[in-house]
């Protein structure tokens, strides 16, 4: 299968071009955030305040990396389970977030928001954290350093591998894939 290339910032057209099961390679800037950072971002939105990062057209990677060893850009950095970010994700899609990278199923509310705002959900291979770290070329904490592994980081990635699980047409690879192999 040919792999599709994604270079953020992403447009509606980039998202419309994606189908479930597509393998993608991401090159450029992506941002990390998980449980605690999401809570803070959405609290800021609810208070009408500015976010520490402009998420329009951007990709958020759900990850809390291990500390970097000397000489490493970042430690091991695989995806965390995404459903914990479900309560927050629709609000971020509404302000222009285009893609999320994690692992595991999303709620109906998140899937609806992806359809409505033209977003998508990508899965990286859970537990392949040492391998994935190889595609991260630069990492910098840009907000909430006190959260440690949960701080928001700006990552420069090159050919970061992921698979489209939810596209903006309502497709779900987890459901379709399982149907295909169920006995």
């Amino acid at each position: 299968m040919t792999k599709k290339r994604l270079t953020p910032p992403l447009t509606d057209a980039d998202i419309e071009n994606l189908e479930i099961g597509d393998q993608v390679l991401i090159t450029g800037t992506i941002y990390t955030a998980r449980d605690a950072a999401h809570k803070r971002l959405v609290e800021l939105l609810d208070e009408g305040k500015e976010l520490p990062v402009d998420l329009k057209g951007q990709i958020i990677y759900y990850v809390g990396p291990t500390p970097a060893k000397p000489g490493q850009v970042i430690g091991s950095a695989g995806p965390t389970t995404s459903y914990r970010m479900d309560p927050y994700a629709p609000k971020l899609l509404a302000i222009g977030l285009k893609a999320m990278i994690g692992k595991g199923s999303r709620s109906q509310e998140v899937k609806d928001a992806m359809k409505k705002y033209k977003g998508c959900y990508l899965a990286a291979v859970g537990g392949a954290a040492a391998l994935i770290a190889k595609s991260i070329k630069k990492a910098e904490v840009i907000a909430y350093p006190e959260l440690g592994p949960e701080a928001i980081r700006k990552l420069e990635v090159e050919d970061f591998p992921a698979i489209v699980v939810n596209d903006c047409k309502g497709g779900d690879l987890y459901e379709e894939g399982v149907k295909k192999y169920q006995k």
Partner: peptide
């Protein structure tokens, strides 16, 4: 492949 990298470079297989 991930397990090979982790073993050779002595880094965690998973970030968790």
């Amino acid at each position: 492949k991930n397990a090979e990298i982790a073993r050779n470079e002595e880094v965690p297989m998973c970030q968790d």
